[in-house]
Design a protein around this nucleic acid. Structure first.
Length: 350
DNA sequence: ACAGACCCTCAGCA
DNA sequence: ATGCTGAGGGTCT
């Protein structure tokens, strides 16, 4: 089997490996003085889920500020790390195409010995389709929700045709939480850079694919260490450096990742108020986390833009209001919740 | 309820 | 070319 390397040479080895598998092997080979380091990855075949653009627009949903981790590659594919794999996706009118790239071996030894041992692992049946459907929440009928929202609100009806297929992702709450601590008083470009720095500094290098390094999102533990604040300061996080370290430490004290995941099972208001006990998380960020990773689809994050839109089109008596006080925040939230119903947060995103 | 302060960056403009 | 200002998916005191 011929394997392309990052140095654009071809390496021959392991021709029997995976001969009966439908997976494709990719090997990146770096010479380091005498030895070689092999980064071996397996790319799945392209898989497909029938899905209309009206049910899911990748271009909007992956790039509208709910996740900061998806990047469009020159090929037009979206690339992102999810559940410890690199995913590559695109879509056409009728379907979503995706493939998965996963590291198999990273060793300084000759790969010929370790590869067969990984063979069984590769063949392990992983339900990628289920993971995609879960992440995009494809069991939720978005077209039907759009119809419902259009009936409820003429303004939505007018605007919605330009923003078809806007779907909330079901994100990992750890990534979601720390990314949105970064979002306060900030712009998307800078937030994206900060999330990248978090991953490069405290995440694990997953693999390098076509000259792009991909990292996992850091664990809560790794962000909870005391040194993190000063390090993030030097990386330009500003006052958010302290929030990140302190929130991580507090979550660990509360029970770590399980404590966060458990917020999916409690009521929306309980989840929100629990999140707001963490430093750097106020009402808006808490609502973002509720909506984007904790299944509380009724949550309405009221940011400065939602405030402006609400003043101009929905809650006239706020037209002279200068700032978003708690009272104003709750009033705007409640308005959109009663207008759009259970999936109000999804409608708000459109 | 409401200012200020908080880190940093980047348009927009003089 | 430099320098100033305001705002950017807020939060805390």
């Amino acid at each position: 089997m011929t394997i392309k390397t990052s140095r654009r040479k071809n390496v021959e080895f392991g021709s029997k490996f995976l001969e009966s598998s439908q997976h494709q092997l990719i090997c990146l080979c770096h010479t380091r003085n005498i030895g070689c380091i092999f980064y071996v990855m397996a790319a799945s075949p392209i898989m497909r889920i029938p899905c209309k653009v009206a049910e899911l627009s990748l271009d909007i949903s992956l790039n509208c500020g709910q996740s900061f981790r998806w990047k469009k590659r020159p090929s037009g594919e979206w690339a992102g790390v999810l559940a410890g794999y690199l995913w590559l996706m695109n879509q056409d009118e009728a379907g979503l195409n995706y493939r998965v790239v996963t590291p198999v071996v990273q060793s300084e030894a000759s790969p010929s010995e370790s590869l067969p041992a990984k063979k069984a692992e590769m063949k392990e049946c992983i339900d990628y389709e289920h993971m995609v459907k879960d992440y995009f929440q494809l069991d939720i009928d978005l077209e039907s929700l759009y119809r419902q929202w259009s009936l409820a609100d003429a303004n939505f009806d007018k605007v919605a045709k330009n923003f078809v297929g806007v779907r909330m992702l079901k994100q990992d709450p750890v990534e979601n939480l720390f990314a949105f601590i970064c979002s306060s008083n900030n712009n998307i470009q800078r937030i994206t850079g900060m999330v990248e720095k978090l991953c490069e500094t405290y995440g694990n290098h997953l693999l390098t694919y076509e000259d792009m390094a991909y990292y996992t999102f850091p664990s809560i533990e790794s962000l909870a260490e005391e040194k993190v604040e000063s390090k993030l300061r030097t990386l330009g996080f500003g006052y958010r450096a302290k929030f990140i370290q302190q929130s991580a430490a507090k979550i660990m004290k509360n029970g770590g990742r399980d404590w966060l995941l458990n917020l999916r099972t409690v009521s929306y208001l309980e989840a929100k108020s629990s999140l707001m006990t963490l430093p750097g998380i106020g009402a808006k960020v808490a609502d973002c986390i509720c909506l984007m990773s904790l299944n509380h689809s009724v949550a309405i994050p009221v940011d400065t833009h939602v405030f402006q839109i609400a003043k101009a089109n929905y809650v006239p008596h706020l037209s002279q209001t200068k700032s978003v006080t708690d009272k104003v925040y709750n009033e705007i939230s409640a308005h959109f919740q009663s207008l759009f119903g259970t999936y109000a947060g999804w409608a708000h995103s459109v």
